[in-house]
Design a protein around this nucleic acid. Structure first.
Lengths: 195, 195
DNA sequence: CCTACCGATCGGTAGG
DNA sequence: CCTACCGATCGGTAGG
């Protein structure tokens, strides 16, 4: 009985990328073999090569999907809100309050993008640049009148703080996600001393 | 001649680790072969194995030296200064105003520590924890009376912002190192809105 | 002949 | 110190 590709192709792709993201986040892309990835999603190596032409293409698809989803979420929240301060807080929440799967993919984006060939990195770096520009625009909203050249450096400081959060923050720890978001927003806007 | 040999030995070790740090920072530890490292410092693969038993030991020595040097510099500056605010600003400067070599090693510490076996990671993670505790103590100095459990999360946010800076900041760019340090210190202490 | 896979194994390269 | 070479393991592909 022939299997219908259209029905579950996308589903299986997602399952593979979810398993691979968890594996890459734990041991890193270079250390994960195609056999490891296959075992992680209960499939064979050959099956993997049916869905992705190469190991690099698997990583590329994972990061492209993740960055596009992130950008969509950021743009949508900006459309839904009008107050600059609310937009800023929503931005932090989207960045911090990710699903476990999204958090793993984000870690892979931070740590393993550099292992793709330069030519494959380029479109993903362009998406990262979009995130940075969205962030800079957001900062211009909450603090207009600043030297225009400074929004991007400040955006980099903010995104850096948020990206680093992925490396240590656990939802199961003493600090609830909502509290973390509030503290980060307050720290960035009003500073550590105002407590 | 044990003494002459020892001096030479340390010099060569430093040259190897400098070259290797530049290489790891550029292409990543897993992608750098022992032959690559050898070529980078004008030596042979065999020579490398005379100085380091394995590739992992080379990385371990690099990161151990870097973290110990960083901790020494942080502790020394704390002893030289007494004002909490001055101590905080000196901390940021030490973290940002590194030599090119130290910056490369720091990038390797951030990106490639995870590629060591867990057992070899442990002592280096302990050194990272020391940096974090130093940071938390510093924060308690500038803002006493905060819930004691919060100093480490805030220290992680600060160290994260500083670590991320390594990924994008270039001394040759429009922002001078001194200006960056001031902006980071002000952002963390007083917030983005106070400008 | 097509798609969806599997067990086995390829050529090339890694660390040592 | 170099070259030759090893055991193993990698990403990718063969036939069916």
């Amino acid at each position: 009985m022939p299997r219908a590709r259209a029905n579950d192709y996308d589903d299986k792709t997602r399952v593979i990328l979810d398993s691979a993201a968890a594996l890459f986040a734990r041991i890193g892309y270079p250390n994960a073999t195609m056999v490891d990835i296959a075992k992680a999603c209960g499939a064979s190596k050959s099956m993997l090569y049916h869905y992705f032409r190469t190991k690099d293409e698997l990583l590329f698809a994972m990061l492209e999907q993740h960055l596009e989803t992130l950008i969509d979420a950021l743009e949508q929240s900006r459309e839904e809100l009008s107050d600059p301060r609310e937009r800023f807080e929503a931005f932090i929440e989207i960045y911090v309050q990710k699903s476990a799967q999204a958090r793993r993919r984000h870690m892979v984006a931070i740590n393993d993008l550099r292992f793709l060939p330069k030519a494959r990195q380029a479109p993903l770096r362009a998406l990262e640049k979009e995130v940075l520009e969205l962030t800079a625009t957001l900062l211009a909203g909450v603090n207009p009148g600043l030297d225009a050249a400074l929004y991007k450096p400040y955006a980099l400081l903010l995104v850096g703080m948020l990206n680093w959060t992925e490396t240590w923050y656990r939802q199961s720890g003493p600090i609830k996600p909502g509290e973390l978001c509030e503290r980060i927003a307050r720290l960035f806007l009003r500073g550590f001393l105002v407590e």
